[in-house]
Nucleic acid binder design. Structure first.
Lengths: 338, 338
DNA sequence: GTAATTTATGTAACCGGTTGCGTAATTGGT
DNA sequence: ACCAATTACGCAACCGGTTACATAAATTAC
């Protein structure tokens, strides 16, 4: 009971070889039915448990998938993770999850750690800070499946799962324009990450196309925490042109901006219209309810999991890098309607 | 570059034994400085990486901690996980995270999987469904550290980390009473989990002590998702006594109840006062802002991590089961003030 | 009834580190 | 220069499965 039994114990007990025990436990075709039964019974009786350490060493695989995310405690990320976990768990894979906390150094460290711990594949959503991608070469060099989701970078043979951020940014801005906004600002963070850069590009495109002399203006925040809302309000208060529209790259920040606007005497949506991003739960809790871009986190997670699993099972040619673009959707609520 | 080098390769290359290489890499005291240097250099040159599979097998430890949570995508849980991850990662441990989705079967399966995958310790927050705890005996039998947090159960030698839910429930209810509420209901889920049972007990205690003939009434919901709010509203609308106070075991549900109340013509807090639980971000986003119990998730995660690490390092006597009770705090906001 | 197959099991090497024990090499003391 | 005490390193077993290959047993074929 307290002592662990090995296949050698079982072999001795049954007077057969460890190889036969191993094959029986793995339901190998060349073992007779009765022997298998005997082994299974003995295994049950003795409380035998496979030693994955030994199995992993022998098979050179861990049935484990590594994940690196910027942070665990964001509604979007935890939803994606939930999707990944569901798929992975169902397929018998464990998930080793670590967070980079937006730091390049931590991301590097985690990449190395996960590599050494022998994950069979790695899923990554990049840190804002990360500018160099060499740390992923230990995976790509050895053809270990590597996939990026949401915060992606284009590396050879690495699938990516994203939404069309540029189109989303365009639609959000276009919507504000159609609602009559003349001076729309964009609030974003870390423009070196493509997600944000593309939303910004979409914003600019929409402004350009609508031959107004709107001046584009990005307020870059350090992160999407509540205090950053103040920076936006400060800008608005001191702006020469009266700001009447805000496209924020994050719902969580958007709601704080709305609160801050209201406490500064601005009416939303009358004075200023706001569109967020993500469709976080808070979007439907704030008054007025927040217009936003629906971002299919759970689906993204499931697809990321499925994609990497099919790579692992070899049913997809690893050399064929693919890109999956999920549908997003502009959800119009009160915060942006005239 | 593409071929992995082993300590045997290094040994051959340097004309020394694998044992010396191993000891050098582990900075063993009985190896001379020059040899160590030689080995380290050769390791760098050849791009040597330790094979954790082999190391784990030999050492019978994985530097991995398993975690089972009801679900990943809840603000509270992901915050706890973030705390655990920070501590674990810092100490060189990986985190294998899985979710039970509130199902006893999945919890059992995950427990078994994590055991077999050789985690050095297990952290668990129980599923609502779970009624039987035998599946944890594989851990307790073999003295593998097992710790419960938040949704706990008292098992021999298993530390727990919680808050004083009864006191919190008491305070929340008492506060409502002091604000003049005469008919307070409690909204909760799965009363077989101690967290919820204790909050309920606190609620009852507060009612009893205030010698009114308040009748206690629990509305039990299946989960804390938005649709469940309707059940609560239905009860309130058909109640003989006019309900004027609600203590909800979850902020996320509380905000939907408030929204639903408002759209049914009730004024919060004038007609009905509401207190939630958790201090989720939504609590400050809803209008009126939600009074709630602050629940220190990040700290809970960090403590869970630290506690289990000290068990692993042996600095705490494993036989001494401890219980850590974190401080909670009633945060009074608009939703409950007269 | 014997050879040709097919089926069932055993042998032994391998996966790549780790470590107790023994020995050779170096240092130190006098 | 000689013996003792350190110090540095090698040998070999071990961790527990997995699997190619060999071999023995059971079937089938003629």
């Amino acid at each position: 009971m307290s002592k662990k039994t090995t296949i050698y114990d079982l072999a001795k007990r049954l007077g057969i070889s460890p190889a036969t025990v191993s094959r029986s436990l793995n339901d190998h075709p060349s073992i007779s039915g009765k022997t298998k039964k005997k082994v299974l019974e003995a295994a049950k009786e003795t409380g035998y448990r496979i030693n994955k350490f030994a199995s992993n060493l022998s098979l050179q695989k861990s049935n484990t998938i590594g994940v690196i995310v910027p942070r665990l405690n964001s509604d979007f990320m935890s939803t994606v993770l939930s999707g990944i976990e569901t798929i992975a768990n169902n397929a018998g894979y464990n998930l080793v999850i670590s967070q980079s906390l937006e730091q390049e150094e931590k991301e590097k460290f985690n990449t190395k750690t996960l590599f050494e711990s022998g994950v069979d594949a790695l899923l990554v959503s990049l840190a804002n800070e990360t500018m160099n991608y060499d740390h992923f070469s230990i995976f790509t060099d050895r053809k270990i499946p590597l996939l990026f989701f949401d915060r992606v970078i284009d590396l050879p043979n690495c699938p990516t799962i994203i939404i069309d951020n540029e189109a989303a940014g365009y639609q959000a801005t276009e919507h504000l324009i159609q609602q009559g906004c003349k001076h729309i600002i964009h609030v974003s963070s870390g423009l070196n990450r493509s997600v944000y850069k593309l939303r910004y590009a979409g914003y600019r495109k929409a402004l350009k196309e609508n031959e107004n002399n709107f001046r584009e203006r990005v307020i870059q925040v350090d992160n999407f925490s509540p205090p950053e809302a103040k920076k936006v309000i400060d800008f608005i208060k001191t702006s020469v042109h009266p700001i009447d529209g805000i496209f924020v790259s994050s719902d969580s920040l958007a709601v704080y901006i709305i609160k801050e606007l209201r406490s500064n005497g601005y009416q939303v949506p009358n004075d200023i219209k706001v569109v967020g991003f993500n469709n976080d739960p808070v979007a439907q809790v704030i008054t007025p309810e927040l217009s936003t871009i629906e971002y299919p986190g759970y689906k993204m997670g499931k697809l990321a999991g499925q994609s990497i699993l099919s790579h692992l099972s070899g049913s997809i040619n690893i050399e064929t890098a693919d890109q999956i673009i999920l549908k997003h959707r502009l959800i119009i609520r009160e915060s942006s309607q005239k």
